[in-house]
């Protein structure tokens, strides 16, 4: 009798430990799952982080979309960062280039990464960048100022309800992290 309870306990504990290990793994699995989920649903405003080949779209001159540009610095990174204009009226299907200016305010070499984000999130899949300084980590020499173009197009399939799209860039000072690599 008591032997069989011990066996039952052993079996049960083994199964429960498997659940515990599986749930620990599940916590980690949530990381790629989250990216896949955001990718499929387009939630979260993540936009392409690698260059897209320039393809031809039919330009829709019948409507205008306002593109707003926001620039910010993470943890007061020692930089200056702005867009050449705060907003731009565009036609879907046409390619545009906007210049961004960034300067390293320190006397040392700096490595910085810009992270883009689109609002509203669901419009992100229609906003396509063919050239962007955010595709790679940027290297700034001491006090170097750079002019960096962003070339983009808005897919004419963009639903009518989106009249304004906001593109936000945040520059992260990665010098320490990248040097340690």
């Amino acid at each position: 009798m008591s032997g069989s309870v011990e066996q039952k306990n052993k079996r049960l504990v083994r199964n429960l430990v498997i659940v515990v290990v599986a749930m620990f793994g599940f916590g980690y699995a949530l990381v790629p799952l989250y990216d896949v989920f955001c990718d499929i649903t387009g939630l979260n405003g993540k936009t392409n982080t690698e260059a897209v080949e320039e393809t031809h779209y039919k330009i829709d001159t019948t409507r205008n979309v306002t593109i707003e540009f926001i620039t910010s610095l993470n943890e007061s990174a020692p930089m200056q960062f702005r867009a050449e204009s705060a907003k731009l009226k565009i036609h879907p299907g046409e390619y545009y280039t906007v210049n961004f200016f960034a300067q390293n305010l320190t006397d040392k070499k700096m490595l910085a990464q810009a992270i883009p984000s689109i609002t509203p999130g669901l419009a992100a899949e229609y906003f396509i960048k063919t050239e962007c300084f955010c595709f790679n980590e940027q290297t700034f020499a001491a006090n170097e100022a750079k002019t960096m173009p962003v070339r983009f197009v808005v897919d004419p399939k963009l639903p009518e309800k989106y009249k304004t799209i906001t593109l936000a860039y945040t520059f992260f000072d990665n010098t320490e992290k990248s040097v340690n690599k």
Binding site: L16, V20, V21, M23, F24, F26, G27, L30
Partner: peptide, 14 residues
């Protein structure tokens, strides 16, 4: 508890 505590342990490990 056995379903959630490992997930929290994972999050803080990250």
């Amino acid at each position: 508890l056995i379903a959630i505590m490992p997930v929290f342990a994972g999050a803080v490990t990250m």
